[in-house]
Design a protein around this nucleic acid. Structure first.
Lengths: 145, 145
DNA sequence: ATATTATAGACTCTTAATATCTATAATTCA
DNA sequence: TGAATTATAGATATTAAGAGTCTATAATAT
């Protein structure tokens, strides 16, 4: 069981967009260079983020992708759900009733994970990063997210 | 991202073996009937559980599978690891250092999930089930795990 | 108009999971 | 000893999902 590469790229892209800020749109070409991935592939990922309502796109020259107004409240879980869907980690394949104990326990575990992923918002991360920056502890490659 | 069917069968099998108790070995044929799955497929799963040290096997007539002595301390996480392996849910595919923030956060989330899965041991579940049983609240299909 | 950029669909490639079949080894019992 | 029973191992086939490419189309700025 693993998160997809698409999720990986989505999380990094969102983090990078939140560093850049919502003012300047970035083209997929630039983002693809940044993450060493093909532009057409990253396009599909970005389109999912647009459809999920967390990114805004604009065609034409000076177009590209930028965060939407609500960006600070977007959580890791939101991003993961946008890419992987919201299906749960476990579907009991046996045909006993809905009160399958195995199912219940695994879903409780999943809920713990989701609680943590929901608590990590882009706003919080940006705040944390800026604290680090002010404290002078930011690493040399500050462009890396 | 989903747990495999094999994990599903493994969890149910272990739970069922813990209801039966470690005294009487059960053949794969019986277990496969119970879970409506092919015996050869379930065999491979059981072999993994044997190799992980949580189940004991015996060939020949009256042979089969039974729990080992330590069965009460076996957790859901142990069983999942036996089937799925212990690799983490996330490997950042970018080549920035080991201190990838995305990686860290997802791994923290995974750790929360694992803590819960580790706390669910077969011993605890058996105890809980027997309380339910004594309290007369057990459902009609008490053979279902 | 033309260049730029996003969107959408078809398509291929690869990998992992699922599942089956067969042969072999170990053990019981008559 | 021999036959029946049961687990183990390996080869193989099938399917589904992820990863990635290519091309055509739509939207927009200059």
């Amino acid at each position: 069981m693993k998160y997809s590469k698409a999720t990986d790229y989505a999380l990094h892209t969102m983090l990078f967009l939140s560093v850049v800020g919502p003012d300047k749109p970035l083209g997929v070409q630039l983002l693809a260079d940044k993450f060493q991935v093909s532009p057409t592939y990253l396009s599909k990922i970005l389109t999912k983020l647009v459809k999920a309502g967390m990114v805004e796109s604009a065609s034409g020259a000076n177009g590209g992708y930028r965060l939407k107004r609500n960006w600070e409240s977007v959580s890791f879980l939101d991003i993961i759900h946008a890419i992987e869907g919201t299906a749960s980690l476990f579907d009991c394949s046996l045909d006993h009733g809905p009160e399958c104990q195995v199912q219940q326990i695994v879903l409780e575990a999943e809920a713990k994970m989701e609680t943590h992923l929901r608590s990590q918002t882009l706003g919080e991360l940006a705040k944390r990063s800026s604290l680090l920056f002010k404290g002078g502890q930011m690493s040399s490659d500050e462009g890396t997210v």
